[in-house]
Amino acid sequence: MMEIFTGLLLPCFYAVMACVAFCLVLNHHGKLMVVSSLGGGVGWAACLLCAFTGSDIVQYFAGAVAVAAYAEVMARLMKAPATGFLVVGILPFVPGGGIYYTMEYCLSGDTELFLTTGIHTFGVAGAVAVGILLVSSITRLLREGRAPKNRHLGGEK
């Protein structure tokens, strides 16, 4: 029981609170602020639950998918732009740590670790981006019938 608390609930709580604070920076108000911050917690929980895979790229991908799915659902329910939910909820998955460690290895002259960490950071950012892309594409497919006609979807635009 204690393990669930310190291993899952507490980090998710931190993620939610960090997102609430981030809403103050991005000028997000009221109900939307609370709901979008909870998205950060949902994503972080998904990320932690995928820890068994042992790959943080998979974990970040799962987290991003969870946040994006949450954002799309909430955007429909609350009739607000999905971006707001997404921007706030995705924050914990931006590889700030990767940027830092890459820089640190660069400074210490460890070229091999610098390159490995740098590429890994790109990988994580890519996984998050692909997660968002996947969910948004699926949502788009589902609502395609209602999109304005002049807007050609896909590459032909």
Binding site: L86, V87, L91, P95, G97, Y100, Y101, V128, A129, I132
Partner: peptide, 28 residues
């Protein structure tokens, strides 16, 4: 030191740009 600096970084990281970049590319 690393945890402190990374935490402080997070208020500045380009999360908004990364998120919107993906959505823009997706729309063509």
């Amino acid at each position: 030191l690393d945890k402190i600096i990374i935490g402080a970084f997070m208020g500045l990281v380009p999360g908004v740009a990364i998120t919107n970049f993906m959505r823009d590319v997706l729309e063509g």
